[in-house]
Design a protein around this nucleic acid. Structure first.
Lengths: 213, 213
DNA sequence: ACCTGAACACCGTTCAAGT
DNA sequence: ACCTGAACACCGTTCAAGT
């Protein structure tokens, strides 16, 4: 996907929607140059604006990263929902596997983006006024998984248990697997989409055997 | 733990063991100022040496990070071994839980360090001549987990299965859980050692139910 | 062989000044 | 209200020069 960044016309006094343009620029930088390539100055330049201009819209770099992360969670949520709907099965276990696949696939397709979403500094900055909406976006992402687990427990396809614990286990599993792959720990094990599905499924099945009735 | 960095005496021509001093300085910077606080220039200053001196020992910052990561894997390995030995049970499942606890505890005790160990750039740089020993250190870490799983399959405490798959699932689970906690995703759920053990155990049990005989 | 100091191209952040 | 340009304190990296 090619990301468009609205540039300020050089004869204009104002940009119009600089905030949005900076977020788009950040996404472009992340996807083209990785985490290290994301800088306020580079984003400002892509938006056709001076390097100090972003400070009218974000109080620091971390605030821009938080805005990008929020956008990222929405994309992650959509990626998981799309997989679940494509599955179109009544079987909760199959749909859980689809969510897992959506999660891992998103991470592999947008590694720098995925890492940025979970970058600690975004989460540990208590004063960020944007934090509420970021947390909301994150909860919605996790909600896709959580909803299926609740449903499985309710209709008896999953063994009775604490849904918080089960969600956390499932989330940890797909999160860890995603990071091990994109950090290169598995030595290029997952190059093809088929290989991704195979690894995700086989790892997921082991947990499923533990939580299924 | 307070980390000592050997400084060059200002009247001396050479440092003596600058390479080692820079790695120690890196560890100190990581533990005191986080990932963002780790810079070649700051490490050089801690070692009492000019900012260009490190380039006689590391071809770039990434090479220093790789050396730090190698040291980190050794500490991680020791942390897991210590937990397993303290467990002193013949039960593979109990010892697996001890390994899991060692892994997660290490991550929570040294978050910046843990993140650095797995930083993608360290792994994706194919040309780094140090990569072989880094990979060896990483394999030894994973070997602690892997050894227990092999043993469990051999003596029948674990269900028969592909040990690669089972190891990957277990590793993904503890890795994901560690990162979700240190990245603040769980909202300060794990503040006390008891809470860490409780979460690790409950999540681990779900996977164990899937892989135990 | 090992280290220094100056230099270059980047950062994030602040602030007075412009429109 | 929004943006610019200069400034400051940091980076990583290179390179001629010193011991």
């Amino acid at each position: 996907m090619s990301i468009r960044v609205a540039r300020k016309r050089s004869d204009a006094y104002q940009h119009g929607d600089l905030r949005r343009a900076l977020v788009q620029a950040g996404l472009k930088l992340l996807s083209e140059h990785g985490v290290a390539g994301l800088s306020l100055r580079a984003a400002a330049e892509l938006a056709g604006v001076s390097h100090a201009a972003p400070y009218r819209h974000f109080r620091d770099k971390n605030a821009l990263v938080a805005a990008i992360a929020e956008e990222g969670f929405k994309l992650l949520t959509r990626a998981m929902r799309t997989e679940v709907e494509a599955c179109s099965s009544g079987d909760v276990l199959l749909r859980l596997r689809a969510v897992a696949h959506g999660y891992v696939s998103f991470a592999l397709a947008h590694p720098a983006y995925f890492r940025t979403i979970f970058a600690e500094r975004v989460w540990l900055d208590k004063n960020d006024p944007m934090k509420d909406s970021l947390v909301a976006a994150s909860r919605e992402s996790l909600g896709v998984l959580r909803g299926l687990i609740d449903e499985g427990i309710r209709n008896g396809h999953l063994r009775a248990g604490d849904p918080d614990q089960i969600s956390l286990a499932a989330w940890s599993l797909v999160h860890g697997l995603s990071l091990l792959i994109i950090d290169g720990q598995l030595g290029g094990l997952c190059d093809t989409p088929a290989a991704i599905r195979s690894v995700t499924d086989s790892v997921g099945r082991l947990l499923q055997r533990g939580i299924a009735r």
